Simulated scan of single mutants.
Amino acid sequence: MTMGSNLYHFCFGFSISLVLFGLAFGQLSTDYYASTCPKALSTIRNVVFKAVANEHRMGASLLRLHFHDCFVNGCDASILLDDTSSFTGEKTAVPNKDSARGFDVIDTIKSAVENICPGVVSCADIVAVAARDSVVKLGGPWWAVQLGRRDSTTASFSGANSGIPSPFMDLAALISKFSNKGFTAKEMVTLSGAHTIGQAACRNFRSRIYNETNIDSSFAASLKPNCPSAGGDSSLSPLDADTSDVFDNAYFKDLVNKKGLLHSDQQLFNGGSTDSQVSAYSTGPAAFRSDFADAMVKMGSLSPLTGTNGEIRSNCRKIN
């Protein structure tokens, strides 16, 4: 468990990106709603726990929403905006189309929070807290979510297409993509550990299981019936072969055994600079849990809208 004092020590310990992260922490706080909506966090948790209990995959989906939101112009709930006749949002961008999900759960949370504290809790904060609660529900670490983000009044279709890491990227591209957001290669490996839960569609790993050699042959063979060489693009397989409903370090064990589902996953353990970190996490679950919590706090502080910037949407799918 990561306590507040350690979180501040962690974040301010970084000498780079102080403007991005240090100032953000000066405006966000863990007790932001203590007086304005004291039941906000428990209300969010109750909805998330119920949704994840009903469908374990939803935990991974809510966590992914937070990633895909923060990697495009910061953690501002831009990913939640629906397209309109005059506006193209991020939902139809390649990384999100027919893939990003959990929007209905966010809607349910927003309605519940609006019932007790109208116009107070932002959609961006809901997404951040829902991600944390999803991880906790699936057995992962808890972290103190920094709060006080406001919601964007715009989104970036092009930003979603260019800013979110692809499952087809090689290691150098992955390191660069995360570095652009202020993350080290180690933190990139840590955050990739989110793939210890959830599933991926056949279209995102077909080329790996049929064409790549750094894959366990029996593992590849087991995936082919559900992901034929042609067709079945939307068929799902677990990112973590054995415990996809539990937040643990099995993902890293899979990589060491050449059982990474996505090309981008196996790139983390493929004779490159991140092999040692994957190995360390594969045998050190406590270190992974602690580092993941810290990295999520850092990610949640990516360019938040605060103060008078943005708004508090009454409906997460559209601007006020």
Rank of each mutant, 00 (worst) to 15 (best):
G4E: 15
G4L: 14
N6D: 14
L7Y: 10
F10A: 05
G22F: 12
A24L: 00
F25H: 07
G26C: 15
A34R: 03
A34G: 00
S35C: 08
S35A: 14
T36K: 09
T36D: 01
C37R: 09
K39Y: 07
I44M: 10
R45H: 08
R45C: 10
V47R: 05
A53Y: 10
A53C: 12
A53D: 15
H56W: 12
H56C: 09
M58G: 05
G59M: 08
L63V: 14
L63E: 06
F67V: 06
F67H: 15
H68P: 00
H68Q: 13
D69A: 11
V72Y: 10
N73R: 13
D76R: 15
A77G: 02
S78N: 09
T88R: 12
G89K: 04
K91W: 01
N96Y: 01
K97F: 11
F103P: 01
T108W: 05
S111N: 13
V113G: 01
I116T: 12
V120M: 07
C123L: 02
A124V: 02
I126E: 08
V127D: 02
A128M: 04
A128G: 02
R132G: 06
R132W: 04
V136L: 05
L138K: 00
G139A: 07
P141G: 03
W142P: 01
W143P: 02
W143A: 01
V145E: 01
Q146D: 11
G148F: 04
D151K: 07
S152N: 06
S156Q: 00
S156M: 01
S156R: 01
A160I: 04
A160N: 00
S162A: 14
S162I: 09
S166Y: 10
S166N: 11
F168N: 14
F168T: 15
F168D: 15
D170G: 12
L171M: 10
L174N: 03
N180W: 06
N180P: 00
K186Q: 11
L191H: 00
L191D: 00
A194N: 08
I197D: 04
G198A: 11
A201D: 01
R203F: 03
F205N: 06
R208V: 10
N211V: 05
I215T: 13
D216L: 05
S217I: 11
S218Y: 07
A220T: 03
A220S: 14
A221Q: 09
L223W: 03
C227R: 06
P228F: 10
S229W: 05
A230N: 12
S234A: 12
S234L: 15
P238M: 04
D240R: 04
A241L: 12
T243V: 13
S244D: 08
D245P: 00
V246S: 11
D248A: 10
N249E: 07
N249I: 03
A250K: 11
Y251H: 08
L255G: 03
H263S: 12
S264Q: 02
S264G: 03
Q266E: 00
Q267L: 09
L268H: 06
F269S: 03
G271C: 02
G272S: 09
G272I: 07
A280E: 14
Y281W: 09
Y281H: 07
S282R: 08
A286I: 09
S290R: 12
S290D: 15
M296N: 04
V297D: 12
K298N: 01
S301R: 10
L302W: 06
S303M: 14
T306P: 11
T308S: 13
E311H: 10
R317T: 02
R317Q: 01
I319L: 06
N320Q: 03
N320A: 08
N320W: 04
N320M: 01
